[in-house]
Write a protein that binds this DNA or RNA. Structure first.
Length: 256
DNA sequence: ATGGCGCATGGAATGCGA
């Protein structure tokens, strides 16, 4: 069985002890991280290697930043979306355990009238075209994991969520177009509705009153669908002292 | 219950995230 996980850590500098604990406890075959919020020269490679993991990473100061950790060296790393000029470090790809993995931190968008919203939609379109035209044809055993900043369905957002961002029809249409490339939302293959959310607001005790959304996802290619054995949110890290506002999403995959 | 938290920058107050 392979265990593949994704976790927006909201600063790897702050969350490194929790990440190391989580690696030791769960021993994932791949862990995708987002929001490192650090430059590559600050990446804690020595600590991660001491924990028995290798890493490929793409960071920047203050914002964004993505990484893939694995017990064997991730192969053929690729940084960013080819042909899409972007200063923001949001995408890293690598091959682990015979799986092509794209780890992505989708733009937030901020609000529907923001330039960041237009950037979000353009970014998703570029990602979709790249996956459809280049990645999926080359790598049948493929998965896309990360923080999508989209709650795909009504059930994926708390009813009290009042903002348009994250749940707007164009964002949900973009998610469907992405799925339409030949991908499956692994979480929805299983009845795990009690763990429906992957993010909870830091404000107003969001976690204790379950004010959250499911915005972290693992999408798998059709050839991997039959190998999926389970997919769930691990809520435990969200309850720790000084947590990330996101919890890990974990996929169990039968070895093929 | 969305001003209300947490993080980074810079060394206080502000911008951003979702």
């Amino acid at each position: 069985m392979l265990k593949i996980a994704t976790w927006n850590v909201n600063s790897l500098r702050v969350r490194l002890p929790q990440v190391l604990d989580w690696l030791a406890a769960h021993k994932p075959d791949a862990l995708c991280l987002q929001e490192l919020k650090m430059e590559d020269k600050a990446f804690p490679l020595a600590e991660i290697q001491a924990a028995g993991y290798h890493a490929v990473f793409s960071g920047q100061k203050t914002w964004n930043g993505v990484a893939i950790l694995a017990p064997t060296p991730p192969e053929n790393p690729l940084y960013g979306i080819p042909g899409f000029k972007d200063e923001q470090k949001r995408v890293i790809a690598a091959t682990v355990a015979g799986l092509r993995i794209v780890c992505a931190y989708f733009p937030n968008g901020q609000s529907l009238d923001s330039d960041k919203y237009a950037y979000k939609l353009a970014w998703i379109e570029a990602l979709t075209l790249w996956l459809k035209n280049e990645v999926l044809p080359a790598y049948p055993r493929f998965l896309l994991a990360g923080d999508f900043n989209i709650a795909p369905e009504e059930a994926d957002a708390h009813p009290d969520w009042k903002s348009d961002i994250i749940v707007s029809p164009p964002e949900r249409a973009a998610f469907k177009a992405l799925i339409g490339c030949g991908l499956v939302d692994a979480f929805r293959l299983f009845d795990s509705s009690e763990n429906a959310y992957s993010w909870w607001d830091y404000r107003t005790n969001g976690f204790s009153r379950n004010f959250g959304m499911r915005i972290d996802h693992i999408l798998v290619s059709e050839p991997l669908r039959q190998a999926c054995r389970g997919c769930a949110v691990d809520k435990a890290p969200r309850g720790l002292e000084r947590p990330s506002d996101h919890a890990p999403v974990v996929l169990d995959l039968a070895a093929v």
